[in-house]
Design a protein around this nucleic acid. Sequence first.
DNA 1: CAGCAATGCAA
DNA 2: TATTGCATTGCTG
Length: 862
Amino acid sequence: MKEQELYLLDGNSLMYRAFYALPTTLTKSDGTVTNAVFGFTRMLFSLLEEREPDLLGVAFDLAAPTFRHQEYEDYKGNRKETPDELKPQFGIVKEVLEVLEVPIFEKEGYEADDLIGTLAQRAEEEGYQVTIVTGDRDNLQLITDNITVMYNKRGISDIIDYDLEKFREEYELEPLQLIDKKGLMGDNSDNIPGVDGIGKKTSTKLLKEFGSLENVLANIDRVGGKKRKATLREQADRAKLSKKLAEIKVDVPLEVDFSELVLSDYKNQQVYDLFMELEFSSLISQIGGHQKLEVTDYQLIESQEGLEELELTEQVAITLDLSGPKLEQELAGVAVVTSEQGYYCNLTIDKLVDWLEDIFTNKKVLMVGAKEQIRYLLQQGIEVKELSFEPLVADYLLKPSEKEKGFAELVVSHLQREIEDGAEEELLVLQTSLLFDLEEELLPKLEDNELLSLFTEIELPLVSMLAQLELTGIKVSSSELERLSTKLAEKIADLEERAYQLAGEEFNLNSPKQLGVILFEKLGLPVIKRTKTGYSTSASVLEKLKGQHDIIPLISEYRTYTKLKSTYVDPLSDYINQQTGRIHTTFNQLVTATGRLSSAEPNLQNIPIRTEEGREIRQVFVAEEGKKLLAADYSQVELRVLAHISQDEGLKEAYQQGLDIHTKTASEIFELALDEVGQEERRKAKAVNFGIAYGISDWGLAKRLNITNQEAKEYIELYFVRYPKVKEYIDNTIAQAKEEGYVTTLFDRKRYLPQINSNNYHQRSFAERMAINTPIQGTAADIMKLAMIEVNKALKEKSFDAKVLLQVHDELVVEVTESEIEAVNRLVTDKMVSVVELAVDLEVDSKVGDNWKDMSELTIDN
DNA sequence: CAGCAATGCAA
DNA sequence: TATTGCATTGCTG
């Protein structure tokens, strides 16, 4: 029989290795750092897989002082204290080992090394083949014919295997002489002194000649060098002590029966549960993954009669089996699940209309991926009432910072189950049935987090609203687009040619790399800023170089026009739906960490407006014949929200008195009367106002305003003197975030900030700025969402010929028939300003026009 | 072809 | 070393 292999792991040194190899950003969602535990466990697993040990044990140090400390009080005296983020991980890793049923060795007064040394030697005597796994070279002294060392050099996969041969080759000594060597040269990491002036080379040389430390000391006369002789004589005791400290004990009193160190089957439920708790999803798949879900039985319904005979419970989960591109989807069937039974119905949509309408009117409906399905239903002219549950939205509210998850991932993370592959219909019914389980799981979680009313009153109703927005789309004039494209192409071609001439060669103007070479090497312009990979050629850099060379303004202009053409004008045509002549963007409700919406394919929330050239693009977004576009935007919602949540008197007063807030701030920080504030002061004050909401730094403000840090600092300080409660708000919010681990909006939306207590300055500061900004931006987002729902409801109730087309964070774009403009404006404005009562009034500015560019202000007269 | 870096557009 | 996004081009693996 082959010798049994025993693996002994040095828990402490491997945990240290893992800790420094992996980022401390590896945490559970509550912020608990688990990087070392994860790294250690991964090492352990790869060891199990690659080496298939027969027996295994892990040794740990205990906090108590060891005999070495008693011998020498400075033992390990220069060692830094265990990092705070590592300390608690030892407890966790022991839990892991416990559920894996891996024996742990620890004994007061001894280090892991001593336990390993003792165990290794005894196991060898009993005929086992031993491998020590460690990140500490000291263990190499234990090597024999039957004891080898897997030395973890650094990281978690850089491993060197030492056997006797390899050791002799590298050290030119016998393993046990390593102790003598330490006696001579010491060990800085353990604060073992050794003998002054003797290092790696000399110690090896001496030991090769004399064999042991004792022999060296007995033959000092024969050691070369006058000075060295003297030091050795003087420090003989120190050397002996050093040797003693370096020697690993092999006689620790321990009771052990090696045959019991056999590995159990670690792929069990307990391990699974612990890994779930630790959020070690990649390791879960290594232990066999999640419990698989059986595919449910279901009844196939192929006739309208069968459909109408169905006895549905009060709650119904539905999934429409849709495929195909947006707005051209085909329905393959529909899965319906009640609390008792699952069905799959393959009737065509025209035969389903009445039945679906009935359900959406009279039942509580659970859906996943509801927006797309509702959009389809609306397209088929089916009226859809409110949803009662949607798991993706629920999950988003619980963890808004995480990347968007799919349904399967939700099942894994909330139900701890995996969906097995199967036939399409079966899967769909199974998935639909899981909506009940997810609801049961997630509603209490929402409740616990006080997110239920946000969920039911804002997010769920919004799903249908967004479906409607997307379905409606906005009309785009393709002839206008073409005109713009041609115009831009001409300008670009001209600029390109002139730029090449000034550069003296042709190159790719779009490549920052090539442009950098031309500007900073060929033309010798001064380098203003560098990026990770080379010279920066950003707009701010070009701005500073203006006047130094004629090519600079050409490049700036070129950038402007190519940006407009390639990002906005040209791609927009591809998004025009040929049937509707409109662009139907996708609004994503599950993306932002603060609660805002986002828009994509195309993004209609970043259409240019600030410069005249860019603004022209808005001309292509037009109202239908006989209608107008109405744009209603909140005036400075975020600053008003700040006034409300900070309750700062100065800020509140400014709004109550109807002052221009930036002028007011300018008058405060520049100590001017309101009518003395000039354009420049107002501009600066505006930047300060914005900066405050973003968690400003003097450095950042200075950069933005092109002023000195000192000046920026003064502005900020003065701002806080004038608006003291804003300062209080900032301090309190950060303090609260550090305490609770999260911040909230006025409507209880939550955002976790696990980095807020990080030791890393950069990460911590970033989290602090998020803590400041999220309640402001997020509350504004809440307000707008609520307004959208209210506006939509009211437009429908009053049967106006008007539809909301777009939301751009603080603006709603409505398409309205000409005769109803005034009434609709009144309604929209009224709903927008009255969704919530703040310490300051909300204000809305409205404009109307034939397109999104040429708009004139609208006023409401009473 | 995927993914990253640099750049720049919006609120 | 100012918040939240999305999309482009260039370029690398």
